[in-house]
Simulated scan of single mutants.
Amino acid sequence: MLPIALVWATLTRGRVVYDVHEYYSSYYVSKISAPKTIKTLASKMIDNFQVWATKRIGGANVVATAMSVKYINAGAPVSISPNFPLRKAYDKATFANDMERFRRVIHTGTLSEPYGMKSIVDLAVLCEQRGYEIAIDLVRRFPNAHQEKLFVDYVNERGRPSNLRLIPAVTADKIPSLLTPYGIGLSMITKTGQNDLAVPTKLYEYALMGLAIVGTDRTAQKEFVEEHAIGRLCGEQDIEGLADAIYLFSRAEQEQIVKIEEAAALAKTKLFWDDGPEADVQRLLAEIFPPAQFDEAGNRG
Rank of each mutant, 00 (worst) to 15 (best):
Asp217Thr: 10
Gly210Thr: 02
Glu262Ser: 03
Gly210His: 02
Ile167Arg: 06
Val16Lys: 05
Ala198Thr: 15
Gln50Ile: 15
Gln129Ile: 05
Glu133His: 08
Leu266Gln: 09
Asn48Pro: 04
Phe249Lys: 11
Glu157Lys: 12
Thr201Ala: 07
Arg232Ala: 11
Ser177Arg: 15
Val69Ala: 11
Ser177Pro: 00
Gln293Trp: 03
Pro277Thr: 06
Tyr204Asp: 04
Val121Trp: 06
Thr54Gln: 14
Met45Leu: 14
Ala292His: 04
Met67Gln: 15
Pro176His: 08
Arg218Gly: 13
Ala145Gly: 01
Gln147Thr: 12
Ile136Met: 08
Ala207Cys: 08
Glu226Leu: 11
Ala66Leu: 09
Leu242Asp: 05
Gln147Arg: 06
Ser162Pro: 00
Tyr71Phe: 15
Tyr182Asn: 04
Tyr23Ile: 09
Glu227Pro: 07
Gly159Arg: 06
Pro291Tyr: 11
Asp275Leu: 13
Arg158His: 13
Cys234Ile: 10
Asn156Ala: 12
Ala245Cys: 08
Val225Lys: 01
Arg165Met: 10
Pro181Lys: 06
Pro35Asn: 02
Val281Asp: 00
Glu226His: 08
Leu242Trp: 07
Asn61Lys: 12
Ser81Ala: 15
Phe49Met: 09
Val69Met: 05
Ser43Thr: 00
Leu2Ala: 06
Ile136Lys: 05
Met188Ile: 13
Glu113Ser: 12
Gly59Val: 07
Asp137Arg: 12
Arg103Leu: 02
Phe289Gly: 03
Glu157Arg: 13
Gly183Val: 12
Asn299Leu: 07
Pro77His: 10
Arg140Glu: 15
Asp47Thr: 06
Gly75Arg: 09
Asn97Pro: 03
Glu240Cys: 08
Met99Lys: 15
Lys202Asn: 00
Gly235Met: 13
Glu226Met: 14
Leu86Gln: 07
Leu41Ile: 14
Ser112Cys: 13
Ala245Gln: 05
Ile32Pro: 00
Ala292Gly: 02
Asp122Gly: 00
Pro168Gly: 10
Val152Lys: 14
Leu186Pro: 11
Ala93Cys: 06
Ser30Asn: 13
Ser68Gly: 05
Leu208Gln: 01
Gln293Asp: 09
Gly131Ser: 10
